[in-house]
Design a protein around this nucleic acid. Sequence first.
RNA 1: GGCUCCGUAGCUUAAUGGAUAGAGCAUCUGACUACGGAUCAGAAGGUUAGAGGUUCGAGUCCUCUCGGAGUCACCA
Length: 630
Amino acid sequence: MRGKRYLCALKCTDMTIINTLQQAVSQAVETLYGAAVEAETIQVNTTPAEFTGDFTIVVFPMVKLARKAPDVVGAEIGAYLQERVPEVHQYNVIKGFLNLELTADFWQRFLLEEASTPEFGRQARKGEKVMVEYSSPNTNKPLHLGHVRNCLLGWSCSQILDAVGYDVIKVQVVNDRGVAICKSMLAWQKFGNGETPESSGKKGDHLVGDYYVLFEQKTKDEYADWQKSEAALAAYAGRQQQDQSEEAFFKAYKNKWFNEQSGLGAEVRDMLLRWEAGDPDTIALWKQLNSWVYAGFDATYAKMGVDFDKLYFESDTYLLGKDIVEDGLKKKVFYRKEDGSVWVDLSDAGYDEKVVLRADGTSVYITQDLGTARMRYKDFGCEQMIYVVADEQNYHFAVLFEVLRRLGEPYANGLHHLSYGLVELPTGRMKTREGTVVDADDLIEEVISIARGQAEEYGALEGVTAPEREDIFRQIGLGALKFFMIKVNPKRKMIFNPEESVDLQGQTGPYIQYSGVRINGLMQRVEQEGVDLTPAKAYTDFQPQEKELLKGLYEYPGIIQTAAAEYDPSHLANYCYNLAKSFHRFWHDLSVFNAADPEARAFRLELSRAVGQVLRSGMGLLGIEMPQKM
RNA sequence: GGCUCCGUAGCUUAAUGGAUAGAGCAUCUGACUACGGAUCAGAAGGUUAGAGGUUCGAGUCCUCUCGGAGUCACCA
């Protein structure tokens, strides 16, 4: 069971106030109405700000058992709780909602003993391993906007799973072989004149990507020339659909032409064959270009702040899966057709028949994934594997997981496709051929420079050294970009408009960072002036703005659990925003350092410290840094 | 066509079956001689695509309709 419970504070093995209330309500129903209600099923939420109270119990489900009106049931249970649970200070009932106000002592202890600890929100180690696969680029071109979303999701999910106690192994599959990289190789060989990243000053992945584009361009030129030839006219004359225009025909014909008539097509196929045969010169060329690409990728990953524990290379795994095919045949999960190809029939599960091994005995895409899954389990013994891959591959993963289940793989029930919507431009999907791809490096530079421009306008960093300033611009720019991408539900398709610069105001990363900067300012003064915080314990008359923050802090552990259970960091992003918003309001409405009495000052400082720590922790799980100044 | 997903203010979006659908941007109006104004407050903006149903209660679950996307390769 993967239940969602927002309100599951700190250590789940301990009794939390939520558990206490659930138990007490269950007893109340038993005592008052002689009916049994399982404690775990009782809904306890934090009370919305517009009502008085801290926690709210939904009494509707108990109404039928009691055979009384909702407000009567609420009042009776409320009275029972106030009597038996020391933490319950007061209660009120509105319709079917029982709002409970807890004692100041409860909140004091929560703030000072739980929320202030560095481990607040993190769970004990489970001793279970989870593998998260993300990024998984092709090596023929640099990373782009889509990879950015993928990396942020994958990396953040890894952190969140770690926080709830899993041992996480971050991996990527590097698609380093195949026709795509051969195109770059061929173009570089023919037209490159020995260009290297050193000679041209280009980043390696960009250099290789440029040759991929060049290959496509040269092919296009060749095709345009060919279209004037006798053979082309003959092909058009013999076309299937007589009403087809010449333009439409040649557009549709391009693949066939490339495979059968193009000179470059023949050359690139030849290169792929030589690669597969292990031709030393081809392998050397391949290694050379890929090494440039990896250096480029490493730089981009470092800038994004993501990393991996292990890399799987497709050149090592593309032949895998043959043994799993044999296994499947033995188990009668697969069957062989007359031509020798091997299939799996999933029509009873609502899918199609899928080929898992070609007639010539070579692997297809899914065969690699079957073999790789088994290899990973052997490598790490992970009970769960999460694949961060765009939603265009939903069907592929549904089939993959179904096949692994039928094969009885021990990890088959721990597989999850973290499917996310493609990032599109206002003009539609990004297309390499049309040059509309938003490059990851460019994008990162862009957001940093926006942050730089904005900061210079504010002029708040005057006493800061230049390198420190640059680091702050980087933190703000990346904070804005990361928050922008991660605050929306992963499965939602997202439109990115490069014309509209990334916002720094409102519901953004910098908004949250700014609340941290304010808190940091307070903490520095506490340090400098040696403020005594012990009077905090004597503060009991909480203001609504303070209560809002306390309730917000209380929700943090449950939010992490929800984010982990749903593999969805956006919950955490929205949580951080809401907490920062509450803090800004608190800051505006109440004096912290200049509070009227030492008790209020000490308490508000403690509260601010805890908020700052939770924000740093929560944003950290999203891969967003909190600058000291901005 | 089959299967899957999506449709919430002008735009971007939130909401474990629970209270008056919550924010941000954009628009308009206000707020520091007080801890940092990348802030705060207010106004305006919604038939949650539409129609039925289940439920004490539906943006959320079920059915149908409309609109959009993805996928249905011996490509990856």
